Simulated scan of single mutants.
Amino acid sequence: MIQSSSLEQQLKGRDFLTLVDYSKEEITYLLELANYLKKQQRAGKMEQPLQGKTLGMIFEKSSTRTRVSFEVGMYQLGGTALFLSKEDIQMGRGESIPDTARVLSSYLDGMMVRTFSQSVVEELANYASIPVINGLTDTYHPCQVLADLQTIQEIKGGLQGVKIAYIGDGNNMAHSLMIGASKMGMDVAIAAPNGYQPDPSITKKAQSFANTEGGTVLITDDPQVATGKADVIYSDVWASMGQESEQEKRVEAFANFQVNTELLELAKPDVTFLHCLPAHRGEEVTSEVIDGEHSAVFQQAENRLHAQKALMTALIG
C-alpha cells in the first residue's frame, strides 16, 4: 500500500460529500491510491485492508455503476456491502434521518448514499459517527469525478493545464467536474443553454479554486466556444433522474448541444471523449463518437471501481 502517514490520518474517518471539502493534496493521494489498487488487481494481487468492515449502501435513486462498483469494490477489499433501498429501511417510511444515522452507525463502518437532495446526505453525515459517502445527489456527484480525474490522468499523463469542455446540462456532473478539475489546476469550460447553466454559487467556488491552482473556468452558451482546443470533451444526459417530465422540453432546448464528429473537430486532434453513462445515443452524443477512437467511456466506467476502492480504503480502512 502507498504510504503517506499525514494524509492517511487526515482522511481516515472523513465524510466524502463534495470535492469542495478536499484539498488538491488529498485528491492527489486518492488518485495515487486508486492507480495503485488498479495495478495490484491487474497483477492478481488483491489487497484486503477492509476485512471485517461493512458498508451500508442507501439507494433512493436507481444505479448500475455506483451500486456494482461499490459492492464489488468492498468485496475485493475484504469487506461486506449491504444494499438498502428506500423500501428496505424505515427512513423510507418516515423514520427521521438523525435516528437512521445513529442506528446505522452502531452496525456499520461506513455509509454510501445515493439520493435526490444534498441536504439528506449532509444531515446523515451530521448525525452519523461513521464516514458517509455521497454516491450522487441532484447537486453533486463527487465519486464519478474521482474516476474521471483518474481516467484523464491515465490518458493525458497529468491534470495540470489540461482543458476539459463539458457540453450539456449544468447539473450535478457539471458542478462536481468544475470543482474537481479546478482544484487540480485544469481549465474548465461549461457550455449549457441559458436557463440550464450551473449554480452561480458553485461556479464562484470553482473560479476561486482555479485562481489558486492556475486554471480557468468558463461558462458559455456556445458549445463551439467551449470545445475549442479542448483535451477532453465530456457529456451527460439532458434529462437526469427525476426530470423525465421535462424530456421533451429539454430535447428542444439542448438541440444544438449534441457532441458529434463536427464538434470533436474543433478540439485538439487527440481529444478524449468521456461520458458518465448511461448515454442516450442520438441525443447528447452520437454513436459515432461514443463508439469511436476518441472515446474512453468504458475505461472511465471501470475506474469507478478503482477510485471507489481507494476512497473506501482511505476513509474506512
Rank of each mutant, 00 (worst) to 15 (best):
Q3K: 15
S4T: 11
L11W: 12
L19D: 01
V20K: 15
Y22L: 14
E26L: 10
Q41V: 11
G44A: 06
M46R: 15
Q51P: 02
F59P: 02
E60C: 04
S62K: 12
F70K: 09
F70C: 04
E71G: 06
V72S: 11
G73D: 08
Y75W: 10
T80Y: 12
F83Y: 15
E87I: 07
R93M: 14
G94E: 05
S96I: 05
P98I: 10
P98A: 00
L104C: 05
V113N: 03
V113Q: 01
R114S: 00
S117F: 09
Q118K: 09
A128L: 08
S129P: 01
P131S: 07
V132P: 01
G135Q: 01
G135T: 09
P142F: 01
Q144C: 04
V145C: 06
Q150L: 15
Q153Y: 08
Q153P: 07
E154V: 06
I155P: 04
G158I: 05
L159G: 02
L159P: 04
G161L: 12
Y166R: 11
G170N: 11
M173S: 02
I179Y: 07
S182P: 07
G185T: 12
I202W: 06
T203G: 10
S208G: 13
T220C: 03
P223G: 14
Q224Y: 11
K229A: 12
A230Y: 08
V232F: 04
V232E: 09
W238Q: 06
G242S: 02
E252Q: 13
E252F: 00
A255G: 00
E262C: 07
L264K: 08
A267H: 12
P269S: 07
P278Q: 07
A279I: 00
R281H: 10
E284V: 06
D291F: 14
D291M: 03
G292A: 01
Q299D: 15
L305R: 06
G317F: 05
